[in-house]
Design a protein around this nucleic acid. Structure first.
Lengths: 265, 265
DNA sequence: CCCACGCGTTTACGATGTAAACCGCTTCGG
DNA sequence: CCGAAGCGGTTTACATCGTAAACGCGTGGG
């Protein structure tokens, strides 16, 4: 920033209470850690993470920056709270579309599918927040994003062991699963962010410099239309199914004989 | 930062030229974009990304912050240069251990293995830099980290098509492969960073609060030792082999009949 | 009645990224 | 030989950031 002058104040300026605020309940019913967290999430979603500033966040809440410090120890902790809130939205909300609820899962495969869809849903709902989930240090060293809460990991491992996975196999499945989720969702989300950030930069011309220097790369040139189109959803499902197949295979192999795979060992 | 007071100045203070500097060629043979980039990489490796500051980076080069701006447009562009340099180190250096060189690859499978090992190598060599590779917007919207350079993508696609992959299959393989690499390496690297950042925080007691609240999570408690140990290398190989198997399978299926998988379609 | 305290504001400080002016070498054309 | 150009680094300056500390102000219980 500092040089890039976009995001001019507009729509960030405080509400500057009309006279109706005397009642005290219409717009700002007082600050609140939860209100702050939700406001921060909204802010990041609409203005991007680097634009999030204590003063600006305060402004959207009609309050001075320092007021936030009564409810949040500092900016870093605020961001931690943001990711916690987003991740926890896997459970609390009942506005889930239909087949997401983890409690109703039958069998570990169904559970993994529901969990994957749930995480993907929140990732796509908050594309600018999701990278935070990956870059921020987790609670314990062995907690792997995007399954960041102890609660989630516990639930995961319990389900797998109920499904017959050995200790080692359950842990290996946890690692393979988190790698799969993080890789796919991070890339899908970043692609999504790149798409919108390219639409506001140039005024008239569309994709000029993209095609210019591509002359030296014949395959890129030929495949560019293919590379452009977005098959993220289908690829996600296919990769997920492949992972499930692999896990199923390992589970049955472990029941029969015993080979030396990392997944059971 | 601002509150966290670690990383006191020591070893960041400028060299403060002795009298021998009159010759002008002993220590700082003049600035240089490449020198700056390498210094930045070293700095991030040893002090972490948030500690990288124009003034501090200048200090390590025995120079005032503003001097850097002759060679680098700004901090953001400097970071872009950093990741370019790191990623490009896949090709230029001949200090590669043995079986990494991509030019000597025979067949697409060998190529993919070499490339994976090469990327993993640079990720582990610069754990604090690698997350940048993921979070920074790439050159084109369809360039997927960690294969960030057009050159790399071109090489990848060329190899796959030489191996018999159709246009769609090559692109799908590119996406699956990048997701795999990013997920695994990002998690391995972050785990590595978390391990060291936990060793300097507490003075006397070791893993106290880690085991405290775990009482409510029986499976976590039981599996904690398993979760702690690091099998990243083996898991990486196994996942990589699985991906290769999947690609091989799809390639042969596409030769015989034609099912509707995303990988060829 | 008052006063203590919860909540938000004001003020202030050090750090950061970077623009702009500055200044001392070299170097080279006349 | 000399002076002007300009390269390379420094100094100064400013807006903005996170946050500590002191300051009100309204409100509700002794």
């Amino acid at each position: 920033m500092t040089t890039t002058d976009d995001e001019r104040d507009s729509d960030v300026v405080a509400v500057t209470e009309g006279p109706a605020a005397a009642a005290g309940l219409t717009r700002p019913p007082g600050l609140d850690r939860d209100r702050i967290l939700r406001a921060a999430i909204d802010f990041i979603d609409t203005h991007g993470l680097p634009a999030l500033t204590m003063r600006r966040l305060g402004a959207t809440l009609g309050v001075e920056a320092m007021a936030l410090y009564r409810y949040v120890p500092g900016r870093e902790d605020l961001l931690d709270g943001v990711i916690d809130t987003v991740v926890e939205s896997l459970f609390d909300d009942d506005d889930q579309p239909d087949d997401i609820h983890l409690e109703h899962a039958s069998g570990w495969q169904d559970y993994l599918v529901r969990l994957a869809h749930g995480v993907r849903r929140i990732a796509l709902a908050h594309p600018s927040v999701f990278p935070l989930v990956a870059s921020r240090p987790p609670a314990a060293p062995w907690v792997r994003p995007p399954l960041r809460s102890l609660r989630t990991v516990e639930s995961f491992l319990a389900t797998m062991q109920d499904g017959g996975f050995s200790d080692q196999a359950a842990v290996a499945a946890y690692r393979a699963y988190s790698s799969f989720l993080l890789g796919h969702l991070l890339l899908e989300v970043s692609q999504l962010g790149a798409k919108v950030s390219l639409l506001d930069l140039p005024e008239g011309d569309a994709d000029v410099q993209a095609s210019t220097n591509l002359a030296a790369y014949p395959h890129l040139l030929k495949l560019e239309p293919l590379l452009g189109q977005d098959k993220s959803a289908a690829e996600f499902e296919e990769s997920l199914e492949n992972l499930l197949d692999r896990l199923t295979r390992v589970l049955h192999e472990a029941e029969d004989s015993d080979d030396g795979s990392v997944l059971d060992l």
